[in-house]
Structures are given as C-alpha cells and as structure tokens.
Design a binder for these strands. Structure first.
Lengths: 250, 250
DNA sequence: CAATTCAACCGGTCTATACCAGTGGTTCGT
DNA sequence: ACGAACCACTGGTATAGACCGGTTGAATTG
C-alpha cells in the first residue's frame, strides 16, 4: 500500500479506500486479520491517528471488526452497503439488474390540504406537485407510485423526463438537493379493483404499501411518497445494523 | 457542561452523552448552532481532538451536521435511532408502548437440512433449535414467528422463559451474544387457512412476511427468523439514512 | 509436565500543536 | 454606495507522543 501526496484525497481516505477495495475484491477474506495500526503507521510513515481515522471508517461501515487487545479483522457477514440506505425506484431496480421506466398517469400542481402540508412541512395552501406513475421493471408493471413535492423547492420539475429518469437524480442535478434521511412505514394491504387493473393482476391480491417522507441534509422535507408494490412481483430487501452499545472512538 | 475524572466513561463519551441528552430533551432545538470545538476544548480544558471525537459520534448518528467554515448545527429532521437498527419482536412492541408475550407452539431440536444449514452457516446434519410462537401484543395475536438457531451456540436455550422474555436479551445475558447485523426481506402474502386461524383473522387476509438472517459481531449467523405479521394490525416502521458521498474524518 | 508470570503487542483514549480551506463580517479605498 | 482586501472565525486534516487495560504466547517456576 502507498500514499501519494499529489492525490487530492486526504491520506486517511486513500488508506480506507484501498482497504475497502481489498475487502470488496476478496483480496482480504472475511475473518482475515489486518496489520496493526502501528504497523501501518510505521510502514507508510504516517501518524497512527491517521491510520485510525481510516480504519474507523471501515469499522463504521461494518467491514472491519476491532478487538481490543487483539488484532482487527475483516467482518465475515458483510452488509451490502447499497441496501442499507434507501433508494428511489429507479435505483432499486438498477440494483436488481432491471431497467426501470414509468407510465405517467398524473402530473399537476395543486394546493396542499392540511394533512399534506403537515407532512411536507409547508403552510396550508402552499403549492405542491403531484406525480402519479405506474412503475415498470423491464416493461412489466411493478408498483404504483404517488409522489408529492413542494412546488417552490422544485420549480418546473414537470419539464424533466419523469418517464425514464430517477427522481433523485433530477433533484440532485437540477436542484442541488440530496436526499439524506427518510421515515418509512410498510404495511400489507389488498389491492382495490382500480389498483389491481393498473398493475394487471387480480383484485384483492396482497401488496406492500410503503409510505416515505424524505428529507435533505438540512432536514427539509423534499418528498412524500406512497408506493404500492405488487405482492407477487416485489420483495423488499434490507441490510440493517445495530449500533454497538460498546461504541468506540468513532 | 462538566467532565469528571471519576466517571468510568471516557471523556469524549461523557461529552457526547451530555450533548445527546440535550438534543433529545429539546434543550438544543433543531437548527441551533452548538459552540465551536475550540470553545468546548478551552472551556472543559481538554484537547480539541477529544471534543471532535465526541461530536463525531453525534454526526455519525445524524444528530449534528457539520458545515466546514461555519458552525456545527443540530440536525432538523432527527431520525429516531431506535427505529434505525433492527429489533426483536419484544423490543419492537415495547417501543410502541405495548406489552409483548407469546404462545409457544413448538420448541424442539432437530437436524438441519441442506437449505437451513446453508442459511445458518452450519454443516448439514448439525443440530438446530426450532421455536415457533404466536406473538401477542397486549394479549392480541399480532404475528407468527418461526425461529431457527444453531443449537451448539445456544445450549439449553429452551429452558428460558420464551413466553415473556426477548430472545435477544436471553442471548445477550446467558450466551454473551450480541446481534449486530441483519439481512432482511419483506413481501406481501395472503394468509393460509391455518395461519389465519392462528392469528384469529379471516383467511386470505393480506400479511407481511419478513425473513431475517441475524449475525453477531464476528459475522456468525445466530438466527434465521420468518415472521408473518397480520396486515391490519402491524405496520413496519423504518428510519433510514443515505450515507453522504462527502464523507468526513469519521 | 502443569501452572504461573511476564513481556510484547493489540486497540482505546488523550494531549498539544500545526496548518489548511472555507465563511462571513469589517474595513478601507475608490 | 459599493466592491475588494483583510481578518477572525469555523471545521478538516495530520503529527508525534503518552499511558491504559486486555490478549497471547513464551519463558520461568513449582
């Protein structure tokens, strides 16, 4: 392993990126012990604290496990980090190796009622954009999606290609808005006749109803989404991690 | 704020705990700016790096937001951390203010078939413990739970009070085993006649089927759980966070 | 040989210091 | 009045050293 001064990344990130790559690529197997912090420091001629910062990142991500008094090892059950956060439908399908697209059913501005305004953190009467789409995966109907956005935050968002682009990528590219946190609930429901016919399945089929409130880094609500996933076509995948009660220096 | 030498916690944890409490209690509102790192350091007569370690924890948890060149502020949309990890059924119900209990349907040892052995990371033929329970919340049937454990890791676990205790608390107290990561899938299904009658609802009712593989800190599988949640009684709650592409020193 | 001791090594915490790159307000010159 | 330069601040990164308590295996002792 080497560190380069001309690299724009900070040293500790160069190290963590290298280690991450070695783990992902399988060069470092699960359970393998990595060299000690002092060894890295001496080898690379950098401070031990810098090495620790690098290793901290990977411990954080669940890739490494520290054992005081003993060596640091590569975690065995590695969590797929992409499944840890939350994804837009487009991203979700991409991850499953499918192509996402949409049939636009509705897209208009309207005035927020009390409940919606509360959800989005707006004043009653503020304008919102409502987007309703059938979401397709490789051309097959997979879900019904109902999105509400604050109109002021995303002016003229209707003009973009809502049939093929990820909503999050549009937000990020054109409005400088990055989704950061979400509160989500999931329940099982039976499809109504209208929903079932839109998805091309039998009425009363079981389905997942997911509601999501998404916020950006400042804590502002950027969308309220209600998605109905076809029960026999969609399975939601999670990778979760308990925070250790015995936290470390972080 | 004060730090105490006689406190067994490390200094940086004393600080982060205090700050966490101030945020949770509302003494520090969302959006409020906290004193600078150098100010804390001077005030408490400790090193700035120690202050950083404390603040890092809270940034990590999404409670604080750093803004280089400017102040660190309390995050606005605060994620409920208890909903971020994964919970045992008992913990889940506790969080909702309900009392969890169980009706034990099955509890026996058996030999793992190929599929189960693979799930639990055991050799085919290894012994496993199977626990089947109806999970009740405040006395009402809420879910059907099917748990498989490696028998070797949890000898005589059948002896414990599986009707009232959290499985995780038993694991932790008697086997020194802490759940750390989980891979989970959730789908919508219709209840079979048997399942419906066990839960006391109509057949073909919609339900959530959750499958979970749980691992400890070493990456060893400690349980494989299949839970069927009654659709009209249970709603799954998540708080999720996207990792920022622009990571910090951590 | 078994039990104990001990030293080498591990990560965990903390200090004091240094310099950088941004941010935002003040001040100065036009 | 207004832009430019400056400066006092913020967090971000990195250094080199120190001490602690736990782990482990080898050396020593009974």
């Amino acid at each position: 392993m080497k560190v380069h001064v001309q690299d724009s990344r900070p040293i500790f990130r160069q190290i963590s990126d290298t280690l991450r790559e070695q783990i992902r690529s399988g060069a470092l197997r699960g359970g393998a012990t990595i060299p000690s912090e002092r060894e890295y420091a001496g080898q690379l001629r950098i401070s031990r604290m810098t090495v620790r910062a690098a290793i901290n990142e990977l411990v954080q991500e669940g890739l490494l496990v520290r054992r005081p008094g003993s060596a640091t090892t590569v975690a065995v059950g590695v969590i797929d980090k992409s499944a840890e956060g939350f994804l837009s439908f487009t991203e979700d399908m991409q991850m499953r190796g499918m192509r996402a697209s949409s049939q636009l059913i509705e897209c208009h501005e309207e005035v927020a009622d009390a409940a919606t305004a509360a959800e989005l953190g707006l004043r009653v009467g503020a304008r919102i954009v409502v987007i309703e789409r059938v979401r397709l995966a490789d051309g097959e109907p997979m879900a019904l999606e109902h999105v509400q956005l604050p109109a002021q935050r995303f002016p003229n968002i209707q003009q973009h290609d809502l049939a093929h682009l990820s909503l999050y990528s549009i937000m990020e590219a054109h409005y400088g808005c990055t989704p950061r946190t979400s509160d989500e609930t999931i329940e099982a429901v039976s499809l109504s006749f209208a929903e079932a016919s839109a998805l091309g399945v039998a009425p009363d089929s079981p389905a997942l109803l997911a509601r999501r409130i998404t916020r950006d880094a400042r804590g502002l609500v950027i969308e309220a989404v209600k998605t109905i996933y076809c029960g026999d076509r969609y399975r939601m995948v999670f990778a979760r991690r308990r925070s250790e009660s015995n936290r470390s220096e972080s």
